[in-house]
Amino acid sequence: MVTITEGFVPVTGGKVWYQRHDYNTKNAPVIVLHGGPGSSHWSLQGLKELADIRPVILYDQLGCGKSDRPKDPTLWNIERFVEEVKQLKDGLGLNEFHLLGHSWGTTLAAAYYLKHPEGVKSIIFSSPCLSAPKWADDQKQNLRNLPIKIQQTIEECEENGNTDSQAYKEATKIFNNHFVCRLPESERPAFLKEGSKYRNSEIYNMMWGASEFDVAGNLKNFDCTQELHKIAVPTLYTCGRYDEATPESTEYFSRLTPNSKFHVFEKSAHMPYIEENDKFMKVMKDFLSLDTIH
């Protein structure tokens, strides 16, 4: 029977909420790092299913979800988020653990490991963003695969500062339907819409910027590709065939990482954990069950 515990851990700037799912196994837990920046664990809550392999720790990063929302803008930088992960694992008394990051969560997972590799048993990079410039270039390429009218609307709105306009929102929705989640609205789980209330756009705008297609925030120059050879633990890279995190870039990151595996979910965009849930869970469980990473 699964045991669910939840609570708060103090970190720099406030307290973060966590929830642990555990079948009382002795395996090292996996910490899930959600996307954003400024999103929450909400869309990734299905990953609690991995608890039959090893304990799963879901948590909301500071400023979003069920965690504290301090108003101090100096908190929104990758260095503090890296220390937040360390403060979380220390607060939970973890000596060994695995990291599963999605999207911005992979940025955080890589930055964390490269500073604090001790105790990390393996890393899963789900739809990775390990180079902000490369991500921006990939989105421009993805945009070119859409109808010319959509391209023009997005480009004109961004040039004129009209990213709050209805035209821009409708155009980006079409982009999202191609490259973020390809499921029809009627087939998407209700919690996807519910999760919007847990986001913090202030963090996203400060760290990434107002646009998905041009990084203007303090992550603008983040690029750890030259350090991926330092990852010395088993590593899994995954993405969707139509992902914002393109298969080409994801495979490139994997080639730079020793002892890594690479998998593409053929019917998914950026949310294979929802778009192809059964296949996603099988790939995750197979990796997390490896004898070499317990």
Rank of each mutant, 00 (worst) to 15 (best):
C239E: 11
W17H: 12
I293F: 06
V264L: 06
D223M: 03
R80H: 12
E266Y: 10
K121W: 06
T25K: 14
K71G: 12
T235A: 09
D90I: 04
A109V: 04
E84C: 00
V85S: 02
V82G: 03
G161H: 03
E118L: 02
C181V: 12
E159S: 04
T235H: 06
Y273R: 00
K26G: 05
N218D: 11
G14L: 05
E187D: 15
Q166H: 06
K115E: 15
I148T: 14
T250P: 01
D286V: 03
G7D: 06
P37Q: 13
T25C: 02
K86C: 00
A190W: 11
A232I: 12
V180I: 14
T257W: 08
P128Y: 00
I4V: 15
N259M: 14
E202T: 02
A136C: 13
Y113S: 00
K285W: 04
W42P: 02
G119L: 07
G195R: 05
K48Q: 13
T246M: 08
Q19P: 05
P147V: 00
V9Q: 10
G195H: 11
K279D: 11
I124V: 15
I203A: 09
T106P: 10
E227M: 06
A110R: 05
T246S: 15
P70H: 05
T153D: 13
I148Y: 14
T5L: 10
S122R: 09
T12E: 15
G217N: 14
C157D: 14
T163W: 12
V2K: 12
V32S: 00
L88M: 08
W208E: 06
T292M: 01
L288R: 00
K26F: 02
P55R: 05
D22L: 07
E170H: 02
N259Y: 15
P184H: 08
S268N: 01
Y112N: 02
